[in-house]
């Protein structure tokens, strides 16, 4: 019996679209689902060998314990303060650098690009020790501002190039008109460019948020007191304990993930465009 054309198309769709896509969704989605439901299981259920794929008993206890006893309220606050300072610094510096790259022709411009590009290749782990020596000499350990400065440094190159793209997209004529009307160049930037730059600023802020919020290595090295831990360091510290509390661990991870997830889902279009542009331009 011959398979009809319509059926053949259906089989084709199932084999080449539905099946592989389902596999991708399961591979990506299941781990997220797993950490999420684990956070709502009581500890006894998590550590039972009889694995449950849906909580037999729902509880919010892990979140309460992680927040109060394990110190996640402090870690959350530290991460938030560090991230907000980082975002402000990244925005200011990337707007200034991006403006120069978009609007000026000057000697050494190609070298500036080369330097920004090369920074992408330097491993943070390589700078860890000298930075630690430097920061401890200036008594800047356990300091969220110091961490924000380091994060800003690593985010400047990518976000400056991204910002210059947004600024190039704004018509220079508007700026000139403002200058003719008596604005200084800086005045024109503040009054004309900044209001039009909102999409660029939102995108850079989102990138800055994700990068600062997720940073681990420097926060781990530069915080010695529990009161200064960020979320990443707090999560890592739970693993080192002898009696591991999986419920608290899962709840802590969920707390760390939720702000980033909300941001990502709402900002997806902007972020995706940026990743593409950033990767192609370096």
């Amino acid at each position: 019996m011959e398979i009809s054309r319509k059926n053949r198309r259906l089989i084709h769709t199932i084999v080449f679209l539905v099946l592989p896509l389902t596999a991708f969704i399961l591979f990506v989605g299941f781990p997220l689902y797993w950490i999420f439901i684990t956070a709502f299981k009581p500890e006894s259920e998590i550590s039972s060998r009889n694995v449950s794929y849906w909580p037999r008993e729902f509880t919010f206890a892990n979140f309460g314990e992680a927040w109060k006893n394990a110190g996640f309220s402090i870690y959350f606050k530290n991460s938030l303060v560090m991230t907000l300072i980082g975002i402000v610094l990244i925005l200011v510096v990337s707007i200034m650098t991006g403006y120069v790259l978009a609007r000026y022709k000057f000697k050494g411009k190609s070298i500036v690009y080369l330097i920004l590009l090369c920074t992408q290749f330097i491993p943070g782990a390589m700078l860890l020790t000298p930075m630690f020596i430097m920061f401890s000499r200036f008594h800047l350990l356990n300091n969220v501002v110091a961490l924000a400065l380091i994060n800003t440094t690593f985010q400047i190159p990518f976000n400056s190039i991204l910002m210059s793209g947004f600024i190039s997209g704004i018509d220079y004529g508007i700026e000139e008109a403002a200058q003719i009307d008596g604005c200084s160049r800086v005045g024109a930037i503040v009054r004309v460019i900044l209001p039009l730059l909102k999409p660029g600023m939102v995108t850079v802020a989102a990138y800055g948020f994700i990068a600062c919020w997720n940073e681990f290595l420097f926060a781990f090295m530069f915080t010695t007191k529990q009161a200064s831990y960020t979320l990443s360091v707090g999560l890592k510290s739970l693993i080192g304990e002898y009696a591991m509390n999986y419920g608290q661990l899962a709840a802590g991870a969920v707390m760390a993930v939720i702000p980033v997830t909300i941001l990502f889902i709402n900002m997806q279009k902007h972020l995706i465009a940026g990743i593409g542009a950033g990767a192609v331009k370096g």
Binding site: G29, I35, W213, N214, S232, I239, G252, V257, L263, F264
Partner: peptide
């Protein structure tokens, strides 16, 4: 399917260690 891009190395390690 794009969401793991926004996950940190530490959180990824937590998820997979479970």
């Amino acid at each position: 399917v794009f969401l793991p891009w926004a996950m940190s190395g530490v959180v990824t390690a937590m998820i997979w260690s479970l």
